[in-house]
């Protein structure tokens, strides 16, 4: 899993940053959180607890944009928004605390298996996936002679169970994508000779350009809705659950988006020199005649933010 590669480095950097900014943290808040999450029962020292919290705050920059210094109030709001108990438990387990594991196993073992079964759709595959992750969590894997535990990358923004589910889903999707490429082609048919490359009609090429421009103008949420609904084939309910809105809202937004895109395409076609009637006729063209990849179109605006962050 690539997402956990820089966990150790980030943790050490956060630890150094926390040590560098000891005076900016409200000590009374840390003390209050320490008592609330009952960290002592997992065998964590108070200094270790402070270090974990400071590391999480620094890694997320207290939920603020880069290079923005958080005030005490913002820090307090960020810390209060964390799942501190889960964070402490995860780090206690990562540190090898027996008490932590005694608490972790009965609480998360069975839900982990159920989640894996639900993700894979198969009990065998699910148990296998869960066992694999469980072994990793237990720290059986070593890298560069060092025991690695994915729980160290957990920073407490969401719940520990949600993090475990997402990790399972990531591994399952990655495994699927990786193994799908390795699947043998069972029935090999001789490919038919490709038809001669036909030059698309100027109206159709103009229509393709107009559609690209219209989709590129849509905002992030609309593009996500279009991709999840039309490309991934998710239901309105699934999309609504991810976005945290009612499915009727998703339906209304989708309807509005398609209507807006159609209007934009017509406008783009008219700008391209077509009359209103010709633009309307061009919209009635058979999509199969068009050389247009909507998946590519929707993924045109590649995530610059993550790319930039990765490059940094």
């Amino acid at each position: 899993m690539a997402s956990t590669e820089s966990v150790a480095a980030a943790t050490s950097a956060a630890g150094a940053e926390a040590e560098a900014l000891p005076s900016s943290i409200d000590a009374s808040l840390l003390k209050e959180l320490w008592h609330d999450c009952d960290s002592a029962s997992w065998g964590l020292a108070r200094s270790e607890f402070d270090r974990i919290l400071l590391s999480a705050g620094t890694a997320w920059n207290f939920g603020l944009p880069e290079r923005t210094r958080a005030t005490r109030h913002q820090q307090a709001a960020f810390f209060r928004g964390l799942c501190v108990a889960d964070l402490v438990l995860a780090h206690a387990c990562a540190a090898g605390s027996e008490n932590g594991w005694e608490h972790f196993v009965p609480k998360y073992r069975q839900p982990l298996i159920r989640a894996a079964i639900a993700i894979t759709g198969s009990e065998t595959l699910g148990r296998e996936l869960a066992d694999q992750l469980y072994a990793e969590l237990y720290g059986l894997t070593e890298r560069d002679g060092e025991r690695r535990c994915p729980l160290q990358s957990y920073r407490g923004r969401g719940s520990l169970m949600g993090w475990l589910r997402t990790t399972l889903a990531q591994r399952h999707v990655d495994h699927y994508r990786r193994t799908r490429r390795e699947e043998p082609i069972e029935e090999f048919d001789a490919p038919s000779p490709e038809p001669a490359q036909q030059t698309p009609a100027p109206e159709l090429s103009q229509l393709g350009l107009a559609i690209e421009a219209a989709i590129a103008k849509q905002d992030t949420e609309t593009r996500y809705l279009l991709a999840a609904y039309y490309l991934d084939g998710q239901t309105l309910l699934q999309v609504a659950q991810v976005l945290g809105v009612h499915e009727a809202t998703v339906s209304r937004k989708l309807h509005r988006a398609t209507k807006d895109i159609r209007k934009q395409v017509l406008k783009n076609l008219e700008r391209g020199g077509l009359s209103r009637r010709a633009a309307g006729e061009a919209l009635g063209a058979d999509p199969r005649d068009m050389n247009l990849n909507l998946k590519k179109l929707l993924q045109i605006s590649q995530t610059v933010t993550f790319k930039e962050q990765a490059e940094q």
Binding site: A115, A118, G162, A169, E221, A227, A228, Q299, T303, F306
Partner: peptide, 29 residues
């Protein structure tokens, strides 16, 4: 942060699938 993740999800089929599967697992659980 939500906008950043949503922007990525709009363009990334893999992450949309991960989020959808995790959500399904949560509902099943």
């Amino acid at each position: 942060e939500r906008g950043q993740v949503l922007e990525h999800l709009a363009a990334c089929g893999r992450c949309r699938q991960v989020v959808a599967l995790a959500r399904e697992a949560a509902h099943a659980d």
